[in-house]
Design a protein around this nucleic acid. Structure first.
Lengths: 187, 187
DNA sequence: GTCTATACTCAGATAGAC
DNA sequence: GTCTATCTGAGTATAGAC
């Protein structure tokens, strides 16, 4: 009945921020409370199943962003294949802040355990492959080539994030995105 | 004074097993005690600085294995470049159990935080690149090409581990190793 | 060196007033 | 819906006997 002190989307933003920075176990309710501006008990009012549910909300939130800004972009028939590629890559770069932020979906799923997110991660990865495969087809690749290409693209994105972080050198990620782009353009 | 109930290397093996399976935070001292066969207090006798020190020991243990079985293999002058490549790749496969196990060094460093392992991870990655670069040179690549190739190799190894795990499909990792192998052989 | 028993800390979670 | 206050359990870590 009482008015919400903080809007849902603000809570979600704060949650995403904390989980991204600290991971699942590393993010304490205390910190989450500070960041969201809500007390612990209030958080439990909004997320009766506790911390896991909060992580789940973040997971779905990010997932939705990816669908909207990357998947749909890659198959948008209103754009030329070149345009789809360009915007898709651009949004991937922005999702990972140019390589400075790791993949939050991977982090969360690793730390919470595959019980909760395993299937969603698997489905999500298949979607990445699926959509890049469609892009490959649009560029004129045969189906099996397009698939190989898509898997390779996913591997390179994830791998370059790891290496960028490890070396503390974002240029690794940037170069990888360029490499991916070139591979499609040179078909 | 009293004889060790469990040998150091056995403790190390057990520690590695637990940390690999559960990660740093996920591995409780209770479980570590069960797995090693030592009580908690005894563990603290051997590792006065506690859990972090245990993780450190595991980290160094794995690191040493990599140096011996992969790095040294890649630059072993008693072997032809083809042989170095073959044995190196084979040992990489065995390190990650054919793609079924994730990179424990990455897991540990992520969860403990970069304060403790950040520099070692960075140094370690540079060594990976450094040694694959030397392999590329041995295959006749120019220095800058050899370097690009080495970075790409590291990216693909790490990325394919992620994707293999996510899709629950080890063949992704296997195929990537083959791809890497072919790339060197076709120079 | 190893053990039993215990201390300490802090996390996640809940009760109930407002 | 939000809050203060509290509970409960698990985790790391220690003390001190053997």
């Amino acid at each position: 009945m009482r008015p919400q002190k903080v809007q849902d989307h603000e809570v979600l933003t704060a949650l995403t921020k904390v989980f991204r920075a600290k991971g699942f176990e590393g993010a304490s309710l205390k910190e989450i409370a500070q960041e969201t501006g809500l007390k612990k008990a209030s958080l439990y009012h909004r997320f009766p199943d506790g911390k896991k549910q909060m992580a789940e909300a973040v997971f779905n939130h990010v997932d939705e962003w990816v669908v909207t800004n990357i998947f749909k972009m890659l198959i948008n028939e209103d754009l030329t294949p070149e345009e789809r590629l360009g915007k898709g890559i651009k949004n991937i770069s922005s999702l990972y802040k140019g390589g400075s932020e790791s993949c939050i979906l991977r982090t969360l799923s690793m730390q919470i355990g595959m019980e909760l997110f395993g299937m969603q991660i698997q489905t999500g990865m298949k979607e990445w492959i699926n959509h890049f495969e469609k892009l490959g087809l649009a560029f004129g690749l045969a189906k099996s080539e397009a698939n190989k290409n898509a898997v390779q693209t996913l591997i390179e994105i994830q791998g370059s994030l790891i290496v960028s972080e490890g070396l503390a050198d974002q240029s690794v990620f940037e170069k990888t995105l360029k490499r991916i782009k070139n591979r499609y353009q040179n078909i």
